[in-house]
């Protein structure tokens, strides 16, 4: 269970999060919606532990542990996965190498035996096939020369292989056409399970047509201003964020 309490955070000396409260239980999918600049991406980076995102108040308790005290890689090993809005290119490092390094680093952290090349390849092939990805993408360097859709699919593949307990999907729909969005959403849905929590961050409702959340929250000006069921997303689609003091046209 993830409990975010009164979370305040600063970026470049500016207050972005001003008291976020949120509880996510295993198996739940929460969506965070909100206008540009509401602090959606900041929340995801704070949870993943990015440098430069300074927590000034509040706490995040993750399965009993103080999440904020952990290094980014420790959080990852504990099962926190961030699907990046803009996945980073790493020239020369093959996707396979990257994934193997990551999975083994996490296994080591958890005191599990590292996978050998054969075991890893077996898992990789299964997951790749399940996601309808080509082997070619695995041989290529991490995200280098990938299209927007390929990058997001690659994030989904990484999620499938690393099997997180808590996945944060940061604007997974950005830059995707409807077909690519469907494929990525199918991949994500296949990973829904009673043990896995998800936090889906999005600006638009359309992603939530495909990844249907249990709860929807509206983040505006650094705070969750409204929470509800999936129907809240539809309401937002109709009325925009105006009700929350934000004029989208501005």
């Amino acid at each position: 269970m993830i409990e975010i309490k009164n979370l305040h955070a600063k970026v470049d000396g500016k207050d972005i999060l001003k008291g976020v409260d949120l509880t996510i239980r295993p198996g739940e999918v929460h969506a965070i919606m909100g206008p540009n600049g509401a602090g959606k991406s900041t929340l995801s980076y704070v949870l993943a532990g990015r440098e430069g995102y300074e927590v000034t108040d509040g706490s995040v308790t993750y399965y009993g542990k103080d999440l904020l005290a952990l290094e980014p890689e420790e959080r990852a090993a504990e099962g926190v996965f961030l699907a990046f809005q803009y996945p980073v290119e790493i020239p020369g490092v093959a996707n396979t190498t990257f994934l193997k390094t990551a999975i083994n680093a996490m296994r080591k952290h958890r005191g599990e035996k590292e996978l050998d090349a054969m075991q890893f390849l077996k898992i990789l092939r299964e997951k790749t096939k399940a996601l309808g990805m080509s082997d070619d993408m695995l041989k290529r360097a991490v995200n280098v020369g990938f299209s927007g859709g390929e990058k997001k699919r690659n994030e989904t593949l990484q999620m499938a292989i690393l099997e997180p307990k808590f996945a944060i999907l940061d604007e997974t729909d950005s830059g995707l056409d409807i077909d690519a969005l469907k494929i990525v959403a199918e991949g994500v849905n296949a990973l829904r399970s009673p043990e896995r929590s998800m936090l889906v961050i999005t600006h638009y409702q359309r992603l939530l047509d495909y990844i249907v959340p249990d709860f929807v929250h509206v983040l505006a000006a650094g705070r969750i201003v409204k929470s509800g069921g999936k129907e809240l997303a539809l309401e937002l689609e109709k009325n925009g964020y105006r009700d929350f003091g934000v004029d989208e046209a501005a």
Binding site: E73, V88, T101, A105
Partner: peptide
């Protein structure tokens, strides 16, 4: 960005540097 991406995937900073540099030298 590259370092954080690797660390988010559970790779320590030192291993991430090694990985990225190896990629650079590939």
């Amino acid at each position: 960005d590259q370092l954080f991406y690797c660390r988010q995937r559970g790779i320590s900073e030192e291993d991430a540097v090694s990985l990225i540099v190896n990629g650079f030298c590939k």
